[in-house]
Design a protein around this nucleic acid. Structure first.
Lengths: 156, 156
DNA sequence: AAGAATCGTAATATCAGAAGTTACATGAGA
DNA sequence: TCTCATGTAACTTCTGATATTACGATTCTT
């Protein structure tokens, strides 16, 4: 299965938008993320509907943030994308006649449900502001030592 | 992405083998799982290498269990399948130059690693014997009441 | 008003990986 | 020897994300 990288993509875009002081075009964002402008528009559509970003047409148009970075969690972003499937592993059939398969599915469902709950809970605890802070931390660190790690980096 | 149902499939097969008192052919197992015999052979190959099952050729050949159901966990089965990818969601690039993307990836990696650890831990606690017991429980329940649930089923 | 920049979106193509299928070789038993 | 069954390579099909093309709609500038 091919990986669904939409969450990673839009978070990347949101952070770039947070750094910028003017609207960023789909083309600009597509260059950042080495993808296609239409993919950017399509993916960001969900975030616009959720009210996290705004898009403007015409010259000086583009994408701008429309939310408080402290108020939006990764979970909300995931939901804005339409809650895409999290797992690549699944069941053969949803409603099997075979009791053996039902038993297997029941046990697997439990485990996957627990893992999904944990993941979504984590996502719910991370705000965009925390992501931005993580970026700042790295930015400072790498500016200090781009290739040769110093002692300060050793415990990171 | 299409779901990878190999784990579900082989567990199903293993439980059928546990119920049987003679080797089951790939054809028989394929019928149970509504798939193709070659897919069964291909998928079971990993379990054979791990020593969980044996396969015999010729007439009276087929697949037999070669392990103690109490000694094999879902995690071991997952590993025998080659530890296929668990998540359908992933990163756009593994080693991005962009510090923003690095920050995003770092945070996402943490969350996914935690969820994966939880899932594998759960898998490590479930033995094939427990799966078989779950089947027996269901078998008893449904034999008692195939279509019209009784009071006894109401709290299941 | 004209023209350019930019988004919105439908339609289509590409790509990757699991699953399905075919083909043929190998080994075991009657 | 003949048949049954696995082993495996090669190829096809299927599915969903991603990539691309095309065209329409809106906004800004001149």
């Amino acid at each position: 299965m091919r990986h669904d990288s939409r969450l990673s993509s839009v978070l990347h875009a949101l952070l770039h938008m947070a750094e910028a002081d003017r609207p960023l075009t789909s083309e600009t964002l597509a260059l950042c993320m080495s993808t296609h402008p239409v993919v950017v528009r399509r993916t960001m559509a969900g975030l616009r509907e959720a009210g996290f970003v705004r898009s403007g047409k015409g010259p000086s148009g583009g994408w701008t943030l429309a939310c408080d970075l402290n108020a939006v969690t990764l979970r909300q972003v995931h939901e804005a994308l339409g809650e895409p499937a999290i797992f690549a592993i699944g069941k053969r059939s949803e409603r099997p006649d075979c009791l053996v398969e039902q038993a297997v599915n029941a046990v697997l469902d439990d485990a996957f449900a627990a893992a999904e709950a944990l993941l979504l809970d984590r996502f719910g605890q991370v705000t965009l502001a925390m992501l931005a802070a993580e970026f700042s931390r790295r930015h400072a660190g790498v500016a200090r030592s781009p290739l040769a790690p110093t002692k300060d980096d050793s415990h990171v």
